[in-house]
Design a protein around this nucleic acid. Sequence first.
DNA 1: CCGCCGAGGTTTTACGTATAACTTCCGAGG
DNA 2: CCTCGGAAGTTATACGTAAAACCTCGGCGG
Lengths: 339, 339
Amino acid sequence: MQTPEPLGATRPTSKDVARAAGVSQATVSLVLGEKWRGRVSERTAGTVREAARELGYRPNLAARNLRLGRTRTALLVVPALTNEFFAHVYTGAAAVAADHGFGVVLYPSPDGVGPARDPFASAQTALDGVLASSMATAALEAFRGGELPLVMLDSDPADTGAAAHVNLDVARGMRLVTAHLLALGHRRFLHLASAAPSWTFDVRAAALGEALRGAEVRTVRSPLTVAAAREAAGAALAAPGPRPTAVVCDDDILAAGVCKAARRLGLRVPEDLSVTGFDDMALATAVEPELTTVRLPAEEFGRRGMEALLAVLAGEPARSDVLPAELVPRGSTGPAPAP
Amino acid sequence: MQTPEPLGATRPTSKDVARAAGVSQATVSLVLGEKWRGRVSERTAGTVREAARELGYRPNLAARNLRLGRTRTALLVVPALTNEFFAHVYTGAAAVAADHGFGVVLYPSPDGVGPARDPFASAQTALDGVLASSMATAALEAFRGGELPLVMLDSDPADTGAAAHVNLDVARGMRLVTAHLLALGHRRFLHLASAAPSWTFDVRAAALGEALRGAEVRTVRSPLTVAAAREAAGAALAAPGPRPTAVVCDDDILAAGVCKAARRLGLRVPEDLSVTGFDDMALATAVEPELTTVRLPAEEFGRRGMEALLAVLAGEPARSDVLPAELVPRGSTGPAPAP
DNA sequence: CCGCCGAGGTTTTACGTATAACTTCCGAGG
DNA sequence: CCTCGGAAGTTATACGTAAAACCTCGGCGG
């Protein structure tokens, strides 16, 4: 006797439907596969569909996609989904995938706590391709030189190993921010950078350094939480010496922390201190004053990434892409205070 | 650098490994399945493993899990992931699932925009069970009376059809909030409720009504965005008649909107107006003043939900559960202003 | 009348893995 | 000498679906 097999009741198969409809299994497959024109009579097709409905039949997609390389499933590798940005990326990627009959499974890697096991096993399914963010640093190693087609999001285009790269023009975003602040008369800056190592943050730092050549710039790193940013910014703003008049942040979350630190020090934003964010997530307009920030088209980013991956899978020439970033001036920046 | 063949990127199979190792396919399966003790010699096992490594073999999990009801994959049905709360739920659920060798695929249903197609097809895989939030109203219909084991998150326990229910004690959360505000002397309230229909919001409204029996309560509904909440609250606060001194919100997002509306009307929080949130997401401590709110253990919620589902799948008695809610007093509430 | 054709199916096979059932070899106990 | 039994495999089959290859049966042009 076998194990009691308490796992879900065994569902009806195409064979069961065939028996109920009085036809062969192949006919059921033809009818339900929507490719029966001229192969099965309208009457029989109706009977089959009725029987399928009656039994509550649903095809076993695992069986359907048995052949390797045709599972129509992509893996999305991102840092923790609790970062709103990546929730948007997922939304975009999943939408495009769905339009092409593809599914998306997630491989979220909360920094350090990521699944220590085989990433493919943890995805619990066979995969056709991988769409990975360069911010998921730890997890990424597992896919380097992997045998699966790989499209990278926001990673160094010079990096080989990926079939295509879709990037955000964060360098331009940073240039827009610095130009905005320079025009407002700011000359002493604090750059509150992300402590997480990632190409996209390296690019931001480089662009900022380039644009502010000659100005006074101090850099402090912080994890991507409001509390951590508040501590880091608080310490930096209270340090001896002339105080910066503008803080450029790598993320809206960091900017929100800076605003809190400023308030705690009795500094008004933007009268005493200008603050800029990055990403333009919901948080940017939830705080007061609303954050001047750089809008990144997160959902479009996910869409374009998935489109590139699907193109690669279809054997089309891989189309790498760079999406524009845009300055959104709001209330957290203003003229530099008189010296 | 061999560019993998586009679509027919056929990966090595256990048969290929067998050929390379000079054994039969069954032996490969035995060795790699870790169930070869006493069946295969140490030497042969080594050869097989070496060959598998050499070819980069990975078992096709779709094929392995062909038999229905043993796919070790669960579906998580939630509203848009861009709501931080559900990102946490996913994190908890996925962690528990991974510990049991289960995968989690998402079925996010952005209200109304959800996948119009067959939800199972869109999940692109065979499923063993479903873990669904009652907030994913539209998508939920598809699973009602479905043949899959279903565990509901935050839905009416009287609702049959689910094998188990895991709930948050939002009624108690609401009672804690109202008691807090009553103790501060508030007597005129505005309840900013979620416009999305869901059992959890009904419970909150009922608990609030009960606790504030005798007090003056007005209710306004708003979608779960800061901008919408600001508009709704702004209109309600500017309405003629005595102004409420406290606003109870169904969500931190709504509370953030209320704070913005208050500022626009020249009202100080909490001196002129007390505001409370719900959920205690990152937003609650990102705004100024920080929100008095009800902490919901979102990640634990996801964990317990998945544990309940796995228990059901294992044939164990379904254990429904209610998780506690906790008041977190912060700066957005204070004594009622003198009349 | 024959051969051909197309409609409307059926039979058969392939997919990749797991596993039940079977074989073979070899040393030991009777 | 014969049998038994375990180690170390192999062969065969099942899983559910898709699809290729194959039938069967009228109708029709020649």
